[in-house]
Design a protein around this nucleic acid. Sequence first.
DNA 1: GCCTGTTTGGACCTTTTGGTCAAAAAACGG
DNA 2: CCGTTTTTTGACCAAAAGGTCCAAACAGGC
Lengths: 193, 193
Amino acid sequence: MPWEKSFDESDVVEKTMQVFWKKGYAATSISDILDVTGIKRGSLYNAFDGKDDLFMRGLLKYDAEQRRSMMRELESVDDPREAISMFFDFIVRRSNSDSDQKGCFLVNTSLEFSQHSEAVQKVVTDAFKEISAFFEKQIKRGQEGGSIPDTISPRETAKALVASLVGIRVMGRGTFGKAALQQIADQAKRLIA
Amino acid sequence: MPWEKSFDESDVVEKTMQVFWKKGYAATSISDILDVTGIKRGSLYNAFDGKDDLFMRGLLKYDAEQRRSMMRELESVDDPREAISMFFDFIVRRSNSDSDQKGCFLVNTSLEFSQHSEAVQKVVTDAFKEISAFFEKQIKRGQEGGSIPDTISPRETAKALVASLVGIRVMGRGTFGKAALQQIADQAKRLIA
DNA sequence: GCCTGTTTGGACCTTTTGGTCAAAAAACGG
DNA sequence: CCGTTTTTTGACCAAAAGGTCCAAACAGGC
């Protein structure tokens, strides 16, 4: 059994993810990836299947490390109102602390829609569905506990919260200033007030 | 004085706009534009400056014909609450009636952020600022007339409405179903209830 | 220290990219 | 019907795209 790779495979995926995240799929070239990873062409194609493969891996990594891990933390928050509130604050903080203003990789990808495979599209839509389901669950919990009014519709309000979240992610790429994002988040919370 | 162009220049811009709108800047090639317009390479470069120029013209056309013209109509609506409501319904209808699910050209462009010139970025940010200002104005009018509660902040609520709008436009590209968009819009309206 | 099987580097390939150019074609004034 | 002026056409270009390939470099087992 001879030899291990000299480069860290997951490190390459990480760096590749960053580029796709920032520039999008179409605007990112293999040369860009070579530059940022320091790896050589042959090594890349020896370890991965190509551009699509790299993109998918990056997207899955993002989904696991950013979205899923955050949601796992929030699942353990007792107060459902607080869980939703923290979700928004977390996203605002994330948006405002990224000097590259890359936004959300999932949102960005959802707008490159047509140029992606069904598999990629599924990752994105599933992610949004899960976020929506999370909000819905928390709203129901809040209604049971009496902290959220029974008059609102859990499912529809959940979708509205997702839309606000997406809006924050888009506007966070430069259209509005930093202060605005928190303001939007605070307004969105009024939907469950 | 000899000869007029055999092709309709504004027709070329229209068709070009549709392609950029649907596929984005990076994923659209000159050949795509040639195909969809039926024009030949030389003619294109004789009439326009290049890809960037075409993109800018398309974006300006969209802004004028879609966003500005809609807002002009809404300016003349008496009831401020109704004006805001109609804005959302209009966008929902537009999203749901587009079989290509192209979304909003301005929103799409705002996510291609980094690859565009300052001039393009300005068109986008100005558009959002104007929409926000429109909402703010209507909210203030509503408060003066008594149809919108004084307790809400006009400026911040306006921004939240913009974010919701953007969210609808993004989710309208395929993530959520058609019914969901109207539901989100209806929830967003609760911010001024 | 040599054989074995993998990784590496980079030359190379084809296709596509955005863009140029010169010759041919066409409408107008005279 | 002839020059002038502009559009049109398609060949052409250099650069960049994504991807392939193979000789050289390499770390194990024996």
